[in-house]
Design a protein around this nucleic acid. Structure first.
Lengths: 340, 340
DNA sequence: CATTGGCACTCGGAACACGCGAGTGCCAGA
DNA sequence: TCTGGCACTCGCGTGTTCCGAGTGCCAATG
């Protein structure tokens, strides 16, 4: 089939261009790949591919390079996710298992992902809407100041100072502490706020002021936490791949990488762990990132996402390999978090 | 005095070169600065300055640029720290006062510093050896598992799980909690470990196992915390200033910026808040950062440093302005932390 | 009708030459 | 000690040439 050969040519062009970073011509193509046809034939196919908008020439009398649409075709139909080597898998497990706490896990994941892909890696902190409250602690600092500490099942800790309008004694604090814990311990964050709503009613009228205040603070800590969408970036030195001018492509990228809001948008809305999102060039939902692609996926237990992670790299990236690495890191990270 | 004029010429060269980023010649110099002498005279002075190794020509028939030694002279003797404008001061206070917790304070400081200096900013998290223990909390999770929460005066919280060899009842936990707090509340971290050493002796022999275990965990949490030298980096987009090739200067910089150990070395050992360290070009204690300078200072209460912060930029930076910004941010940060 | 070899054509980029001008060093004179 | 003058030096931008990779088209072929 002639259609089949055309696709083989496209695949060859993508692979060659990705590895050499130079426009690829018909002659070089038949030499490096065993296509079994002559350069002239390949030229005809290339002309057809160009008509379809899958490849283009940077200028006349140069070889062809894939367009975004060409990469899209390649990713969708011409390639498959490349599994990692045994050595890489071993590296992942040993590295991730050495982590001591949540921060460390995230940190190591970023480093790992950037090293595996040789690209800029982005990992979102686990979003904790699914996690549960492990404990609430109240500490009397002074008679009108309480320290509220919220401890979550994922191991994160949130703390707030509560300034009271009037002094409170230790017994009252003890009662409040116990009722707070009774209300929310074991609850999922999403439900905890509800459970707290009725709590002030359990108290005498004159005691309600400090109670309401504390409850309000706790609720705000919980909701802050739910929307705490921190991300960590690593491997920025790999931006070197964007060989062209600094101002034109690297500066906006560095700027974007410091804007966590932008990064979250890049990673996409809580992707399910089972799907791998690839956005190529102009498909990336952020102007100023022309020439960049994003490969992202979710991680988490089962079908529910804790968060997302991925990499940003030039459109001319090794998609099969990158996709393999992203998927692998997401899986191992899910496993670690599930156990932890 | 002819020496005075030579120094004036050096100052003028540094200032011009910093603002234009181009080698500065004798003619341009007398035009832009009112030196009151002719270009020829300036040329003689320049020749002398070059003999002394303070300036150099990139190539014959080009203007002069300062050497590292020249910048050093400029910083030490020809310039003074530039105070911030009222608007900048206002920006600092409003921005920093909006912070909600420690993470946020550090985050905002980095952003602030990079915006003020238009350079890469680095802020070390407060090192807590100076800080004191505000409270220790013990929470019974199960009869053989305790959650230990350590709350510090700087607002950081450390937590550990303690697995006990045998069950413990709530009364015993209460006693332990109270004794732990009695021993360490208000203590500085450096001293807390000592104070804990004698604690198991207060208990009956058969109770000592859980006590020792808890104490050991607490001590490890404290010492972990003391060595927790996290740093945060911001404003990497300002690397654009290093105009020359990516591979030659920006890549090693980006790599260094991800190596927190290197950064800590760059910032220098816990500088006192009252001194401002400037390392210029080859003085920077890290190879591969040729062409970079570091301006750093400590922050903290009184003379005792909580940590350090600073910026990294090209040797051709505006030293007076940068020094002013670094010093100002350090002061405001100290104030915020002192109050909090 | 798909494939192939041949051939003229295009054009980007490396190599080279050239001239301008900024900047210097030196020297003699004030 | 400072200044004006003057010859000299290069770096850099511009213009020109030339080479070769790569193309498109066409006629020939199985």
């Amino acid at each position: 089939m002639v259609e089949d050969r055309k696709m083989a040519v496209l695949r060859a062009i993508v692979e060659d261009y990705v590895s050499t970073q130079e426009p690829v011509g018909s002659k070089a193509l038949v030499e490096r790949h065993r296509l079994g046809v002559s350069p002239a034939t390949v030229r005809n196919d290339m002309a057809a591919l160009e008509d379809e908008g899958l490849i283009q020439q940077p200028h006349t009398s140069a070889g062809r390079i894939p367009t975004d649409k060409g990469y899209r075709m390649f990713v969708d139909r011409l390639s498959q996710v490349k599994p990692l080597s045994a050595a890489e898998k071993r590296a992942i497990t040993t590295l991730l298992e050495g982590a001591v706490d949540l921060d460390d896990v995230v940190q190591r994941s970023v480093r790992l992902l950037s090293q595996l892909t040789r690209q800029v890696a982005i990992v979102q902190y686990p979003v904790l809407s699914r996690s549960t409250v492990r404990h609430v602690e109240l500490v009397t600092l002074t008679s009108t100041r309480l320290l509220l500490v919220l401890i979550l099942s994922t191991g994160r800790v949130e703390q707030r100072i509560v300034e009271l309008p009037q002094p409170i004694n230790d017994d009252a604090v003890a009662v409040l502490r116990s009722r707070l814990n009774h209300a929310v311990t074991g609850e999922r964050l999403v439900d905890a706020a509800e459970s707290l709503a009725a709590l002030p009613d359990l108290f005498e009228h004159h005691e309600r002021a400090p109670v309401s205040l504390t409850v309000a603070t706790l609720v705000s800590a919980i909701s802050d936490h739910r929307s705490d969408e921190r991300v960590v970036v690593g491997g920025t030195a790999n931006l070197a791949q964007f060989g062209d001018g600094f101002e034109t492509s690297i500066r906006p990228l560095l700027e974007a990488l410091e804007e966590h809001v932008v990064l979250l948008r890049l990673l996409g809305e809580a992707t399910s762990p089972s799907t791998l999102t690839v956005r190529i060039g102009s498909e990336v939902p952020y102007e100023g990132l022309g020439g960049a692609s994003v490969v992202a996926t979710g991680y988490g237990a089962g079908d529910e996402a804790f968060g997302t992670l991925g990499v940003v790299g030039p459109t001319r990236m090794d998609y099969p390999g990158t996709m393999g690495s992203v998927r692998a890191v997401a899986r191992y990270l899910s496993k670690i978090l599930d156990e932890g």
